[in-house]
Design a binder for these strands. Structure first.
Lengths: 139, 139
DNA sequence: TTCCGTGCAAAAATTTTGCATCATC
DNA sequence: GATGATGCAAAATTTTTGCACGGAA
């Protein structure tokens, strides 16, 4: 799905939930859509500030929470303390470099063999995090 | 490995690294060894306070960091903002309830089919997090 | 005795909230 | 025009740090 289509989906979801479509919300979502780095709130804020200097940190916090609630971004945890956000909704997993902290999306060709139910636990989604050393840290 | 053996391993690692063995460090590690809940720093602190009221939060923060550095606990991220710690070093994965936030260890019978190397990335460890609804939240 | 580790308190960093104003619908 | 969103600043929360003292080696 391209960015335009994603933004249209966002508009649609907002209308469904009676959420207003504001420039701030679009800006936050667009940063997330264009980024492959799974940015923290602070990183999102810094990127937005270049274009829209008036946007406040509080709004970014509020917006990522909304985006998470309406299912357009996922909160992801990797390494360190920072909460990060990811707008890539397609099934994918992550490689995290334990040296430099960089994150890279990984898709498997072969599926992971994980049951949909364990001991009465219903599994909605699976996140596989692989930790190791990335090529540029090998040297 | 039982708790006694784990504590001996801890003592050994400390000697290797010229770290002093203090009651506080043992207390923190013991809480982590006995807990299956993957506690946060605050939860560790509260448990220790019952036995050793003088221990400070700062020490707990410093100790979990040391334990992580010497490879005796893992920092795990699941849901929400809290950083949690896990002293179970055996290969296992986690189920996280997206309603109540509870965490449960999961071991697979069948292995997950994950390569040891992807595009020049060397994979040291894999963490599979399954998100869903636990039995007590189904009602 | 020598250091390293600790407690305490202060500082720093991160996240949330209340409220008046503003913008979207 | 009504309602909900925003910015700002303050508050709450979480984590880190400096320093003098105390305890482990």
């Amino acid at each position: 799905m391209d960015i335009k289509a994603q933004l249209e989906l966002f508009v649609e979801r907002c209308k469904e939930k009676k959420l207003k479509i504001t420039p701030q919300r679009i800006a936050v979502y667009e940063v997330l859509l264009r980024s492959k780095e799974h940015p923290t709130v602070e990183e999102i804020y810094n990127q937005i500030k270049e274009k829209y200097p008036y946007v406040s940190m509080a709004t970014v916090y509020r917006t990522v929470e909304i985006l998470e609630n309406i299912g357009l971004v996922k909160r992801v945890c990797y390494w360190g303390n920072s909460t990060r956000y990811d707008a890539n909704l397609e099934e994918h997993h992550h490689f995290i470099c334990i040296k430099c902290g960089s994150i890279r999306d990984v898709s498997f060709n072969g599926n992971i063999n994980i049951p949909r139910e364990i001991d009465g636990y219903t599994i909605n989604s699976v996140a596989v995090n692989m930790y190791g050393i990335c090529p540029s840290c090998k040297n």
